[in-house]
């Protein structure tokens, strides 16, 4: 189909944006590079430290280039067990933290998408009551209700279990409200079209609502995974056994007040390993929400 085009003819300069000049481009790049250096240098330096022996680290200044102990240090931390945290290998900590972060992220998303679905699309008695109930819990984050929650976990015998680590952090008013706002933007006609097309509540949820929420779910998953990964206070309370620790707790425990007691090279390795999974999640999920942002589905 040859349709008349209303765009101006493409010229060699059509990529230039408003106000772009050579100096401007240089300035922009300089600022960006400076920013990257400021953010990236500490991470790089941690990596460098993780590849030197403890002796090198304790004898300043620390070299600016990676050392030759990469394989040894990482092998020792991942599988050998770290003395100050009861000989638990960092591999176990990574596994624990992954389970907890995934559990929290997935659990929160399931719970909140279902409650938002109920509140937006069903008319039942006490609907607004439940909505406000959820809304009010926004004012009660974990830290505020930590003692009663701890008591409940003790009574249920959930100390040192994944359930105990995950479940109290799952209830989420924020995510419920986010999904609610999104669901409210779905046109009523679409819901009715699905009803006429013979989709019951479950089919509507599975075939229409879930695919349309994909972008929101992806973005929320990233945020919640990192939220779960970086939890500190709750895992500290609810775990006693060293092999149930999360990586953030273990990292804290590894550091002693006396420098000589601290295996700094392993601390550096653990720090490096602790930031890998969140980065992976962001990089992998980014495809989903970037695409979602580019192609508007509605």
């Amino acid at each position: 189909m040859a349709e008349p085009s209303t765009r101006p003819p493409a010229s060699g300069h059509d990529k230039l944006m408003i106000g772009q000049s050579a100096a401007g481009i240089w300035l922009a790049h300089a600022v960006l590079i400076l920013g990257i250096l400021i953010v990236a240098f500490p991470i790089y330096y941690t990596f460098v430290a993780s590849t030197h022996s403890l002796q090198t680290i304790l004898r300043p200044p620390l070299p600016l280039l990676p050392g030759d102990r990469f394989v040894e240090n990482y092998w020792e931390a991942l599988f050998g067990g770290v003395g100050r945290i009861g000989g638990v290998p960092v591999g176990t900590l990574l596994l624990n933290t992954t389970i907890v972060a995934l559990g929290i992220a997935v659990g929160k998303i399931i719970i909140s998408i279902l409650s938002a679905y109920a509140i937006v699309f069903f008319r039942f008695r006490g609907r607004m009551f439940f909505f406000w109930l959820i809304f009010i819990t926004l004012m009660l984050p974990v830290e505020v209700r930590i003692l009663p929650t701890y008591k409940v976990m003790v009574d249920l015998g959930l100390i040192d279990t994944y359930t105990g680590l995950i479940v109290p952090l799952i209830a989420s008013a924020t995510a419920t409200l986010l999904f609610r706002q999104f669901f409210l933007t779905i046109p009523g006609e679409l819901v009715e079209a699905a009803r006429v097309d013979g989709a019951g509540p479950w089919r509507f949820f599975k075939d229409i609502l879930l695919p349309l929420s994909r972008t929101n779910i992806a973005a929320l998953f990233v945020i919640l995974f990192i939220y779960g990964w970086t939890q500190y206070l709750w895992p500290l309370l609810v775990t006693n056994r060293n092999d149930m620790n999360t990586i953030v707790i273990a990292l804290k425990k590894m550091i002693s007040f006396a420098d000589a007691d601290t295996e700094w090279h392993l601390v550096m390795v653990t720090s490096m390993l602790a930031i890998v999974p969140p980065i992976l999640v962001v990089v992998l999920m980014q495809r989903w929400f970037v695409r979602g942002l580019v192609e508007t589905e509605k």
Binding site: P187, E189, L190, E192, A193, V196, L212, R214
Partner: peptide, 14 residues
């Protein structure tokens, strides 16, 4: 067993 055509079409966007 009816079918409806809506004002804004209400096609499933995905």
């Amino acid at each position: 067993d009816i079918a409806m055509v809506f004002q804004n079409y209400a096609l499933y966007p995905h």
